[in-house]
Simulated assay, not measured.
Amino acid sequence: MPDIHIERNHDLGIARARQVARRWLRQVEQDYGLAFTYTEGETQDVAQFSRAGIDGKVEVTADRLRLEATLGFLFASFGAQIEQKISGKLDALLGAGGGPRAA
């Protein structure tokens, strides 16, 4: 079971959602030093990320973005703060691109 689960519904379509997800992942990469791989699919993209103490993935579809992450021992006590910060950045990007609808 993931320590962090963030899911947002949106009405951006896959192309715009892909742009938002990439921008969001670049911010998270800078903030937390994550390395990620991004694989585009026809109806769903998947970004997998990791660094010491954090592993997870982001799924992007035409109407939903979902992040799941597992935190190691050192990060586990900061899970709520990490989730709050990541959620805020995602909501800001979705708001600029079509408006978030919380899941």
Score class of each variant (00 low, 15 high):
residue 78 F to K: 08
residue 55 D to R: 11
residue 41 G to N: 04
residue 37 T to P: 00
residue 69 A to K: 13
residue 71 L to M: 11
residue 96 A to Q: 14
residue 8 R to V: 09
residue 101 R to L: 12
residue 76 A to S: 15
residue 60 V to F: 06
residue 45 D to L: 05
residue 5 H to A: 12
residue 78 F to G: 00
residue 13 G to W: 02
residue 85 K to Q: 10
residue 79 G to M: 08
residue 63 D to W: 00
residue 60 V to C: 11
residue 23 R to G: 05
residue 34 L to V: 05
residue 60 V to K: 03
residue 101 R to K: 07
residue 103 A to G: 14
residue 70 T to N: 12
residue 103 A to C: 02
residue 89 K to H: 07
residue 59 E to C: 04
residue 47 A to L: 10
residue 66 R to T: 12
residue 45 D to N: 15
residue 32 Y to Q: 06
residue 81 Q to P: 00
residue 47 A to F: 09
residue 23 R to D: 15
residue 89 K to D: 11
residue 54 I to W: 12
residue 54 I to P: 00
residue 66 R to C: 13
residue 71 L to N: 13
residue 99 G to K: 07
residue 21 A to K: 01
residue 85 K to I: 04
residue 67 L to D: 11
residue 91 D to L: 15
residue 51 R to P: 11
residue 38 Y to T: 01
residue 83 E to L: 07
residue 65 L to A: 07
residue 102 A to W: 04
residue 20 V to A: 06
residue 75 F to E: 06
residue 77 S to E: 05
residue 72 G to H: 08
residue 4 I to N: 12
residue 45 D to Y: 05
residue 80 A to L: 04
residue 12 L to I: 11
residue 31 D to R: 11
residue 20 V to C: 07
residue 77 S to M: 09
residue 34 L to S: 02
residue 56 G to M: 13
residue 66 R to Y: 05
residue 101 R to Y: 01
residue 100 P to Q: 02
residue 41 G to M: 08
residue 75 F to I: 03
residue 48 Q to P: 00
residue 101 R to V: 15
residue 72 G to W: 00
residue 91 D to N: 14
residue 23 R to W: 01
residue 38 Y to F: 15
residue 89 K to R: 10
residue 84 Q to F: 09
residue 94 L to T: 09
residue 14 I to M: 11
residue 61 T to Q: 09
residue 63 D to M: 07
residue 40 E to Y: 09
residue 99 G to N: 06
residue 55 D to H: 13
residue 53 G to N: 05
residue 66 R to Q: 15
residue 66 R to G: 08
residue 11 D to F: 02
residue 98 G to Y: 05
residue 34 L to Y: 08
residue 92 A to C: 01
residue 64 R to D: 12
residue 28 V to S: 04
residue 8 R to G: 01
residue 25 L to A: 12
residue 22 R to D: 07
residue 41 G to D: 04
residue 85 K to N: 03
residue 6 I to T: 07
residue 14 I to N: 01
residue 28 V to D: 01
residue 98 G to D: 04
residue 27 Q to N: 14
residue 32 Y to C: 09
residue 76 A to E: 07
residue 77 S to C: 01
residue 54 I to T: 01
residue 70 T to Q: 15
residue 12 L to H: 08
residue 25 L to Q: 02
residue 16 R to L: 04
residue 18 R to C: 11
residue 57 K to W: 10
residue 78 F to P: 00
